[in-house]
């Protein structure tokens, strides 16, 4: 190959490398800028997920707007933490600065695919549920994933521990809840998680730390 052609080939290769770097740099810069601009909003949204869940399980009306939800949360919910700052349980007040009307407990637990993270609300008797909300789940979409559907969650309001499962569509007593057809494992998982958590609820609330 002649010298000139070699030089051209080198120039083209260099240009290729330069081009890749330039394009990558430009795009990543733009993305980083957008990320920095939205990062706070995203973090706020993520913290709101838990707060909204607590409000929902307490039976309170959850405002659409993030700011209102946050305000309501600050007024009516008191977090009880352990020495390391992890929230052990939530006290729901009947009015801002009022007395405790119910509790909410964070509930980690095993599902089919991984954790089912939920929050469960209990009355002061620690045996009757005020509600349940799922924060994290990776169950099969369309099957186990349906635990997040309204009808499934709502049925828990007012149920008493210990819980049993009945087939979907059957009438339920105050200690029974309907399963999701085709998602037996997930449903039983939920039952196990709830019963387990509620069994230990007394210890969790009466004796923090």
């Amino acid at each position: 190959m002649s010298d000139r052609r070699k030089a051209n080939k080198l120039r083209r290769s260099l240009f290729t490398i330069f081009f890749m770097f330039a394009v990558t740099f430009v795009f990543i810069s733009v993305l980083s800028l957008i990320y920095v601009l939205t990062r706070d909003t995203i973090r706020l949204n993520e913290s709101l997920v838990v707060k909204r869940a607590v409000l929902y399980v307490a039976g309170l009306e959850v405002p659409q707007s993030g700011i209102e939800a946050d305000t309501l949360y600050q007024e009516r919910v008191r977090e009880v933490k352990d020495g390391q700052g992890t929230v052990l349980y939530y006290e729901i007040l009947d009015a801002p600065g009022g007395s405790i009307q119910s509790y909410a407990l964070p509930v980690p637990g095993a599902g089919l695919w991984g954790e089912i993270g939920s929050v469960v609300g209990v009355e002061k008797d620690l045996k009757t549920l005020t509600g349940i909300e799922f924060i994290k789940q990776n169950e099969t979409p369309g099957l186990g994933g349906r635990i997040t559907e309204g009808w499934f969650k709502e049925q828990f309001r007012g149920k008493r521990w210990p819980l049993e499962v009945v087939p979907e569509g059957d009438p339920t007593g105050d200690q029974e809840f309907q399963a999701i057809t085709g998602a037996t494992n997930t449903t039983n998982g939920v039952k196990g998680i709830l019963n387990d958590r509620l069994a230990k609820a007394e210890q969790a609330i009466k004796a923090p730390e």
């Binding site: 081009f19 795009f27 993305l31």
Partner: peptide, 24 residues
């Protein structure tokens, strides 16, 4: 192909971030 992939991935990231921020 790498450049095209980079461009496409970037726009998708934008969509993802915007969704996370505004309709979480």
């Amino acid at each position: 192909m790498m450049v095209e992939t980079l461009i496409i991935a970037s726009y998708v990231i934008i969509v993802d971030v915007v969704l996370k921020a505004f309709i979480p």
